[in-house]
Amino acid sequence: MNGFADSPLLFRNVDLGPSGLRVLAEKAERARTRLIKFLSEIGGWHAGSSLSSLNIVAALYGYWVPAGRALGVERLVVISKGHMAPALYVWLSIEGLIGEEELETFATPWSRLQSHPEAARLRGLVVSSSGSLGQGLSIANGIALAAKIDGVRREVAVLLGDGELDEGQVWEAAATASAKGLDNVIAVIDRNMLQHTGPTEEVKPKEPLAAKWEAFGWHAVEAPNDAAAIAAALDALSKLRGRPKALIVRR
């Protein structure tokens, strides 16, 4: 894996179960305060999308990925909705993986912290570059299928926006994951009910969303937008076999 075997994400220690989830919730709360300040510093760039993704980022990066190491499973996160980068960078700074002062360099040309994450600038922290919507699930499928071919225990989560689901490629990939039996893929959907122009249900309705994923042969569940609840849902989903899994995180 391109630089992920020694990713600093993997070497965080987390307690599995309730105590780990309590620590996570407390850290996510601190991150929220920091993110709100950061968003005001950067002129509110994709503020709504970053705020609704923060708990998902916390659950994935702060719990699910390091927990995988304890369980002997390689876990990776593909970010498909790249405009949530402020949430990612604030989380990484809370975790001490990037410096607090580095946040000030956000979106400057020389910075590692590009507005949409660039994998080459954040080796071991970002799997693939994003910014163009609709591609992440296909990428996650490729990584997951490679693991099946190699007989490696690996799970891949992919963070998708709900507006992003307008992209046809997401559904090409949804059908592929199910056709190839990729039960090591978890699509986490940030169901913040908003897309660029306005409410998702006014622009292009997404509901019934869980039923759509189910119809594509996926196992779909929902969770409230709460770091501990998302992490617990991820724990439960990781144990399910046979089908790819969608976690819809409700606003």
Binding site: M1, S138, N141, A146, A173
Partner: peptide
């Protein structure tokens, strides 16, 4: 991957990321 070239290309990208 079926008749889906965009999926084909991005999936190949994922395979390359996985080595």
């Amino acid at each position: 991957v079926g008749i889906s070239e965009q999926d084909l290309v991005a999936m190949a990208a994922g395979m390359a990321i996985a080595g």
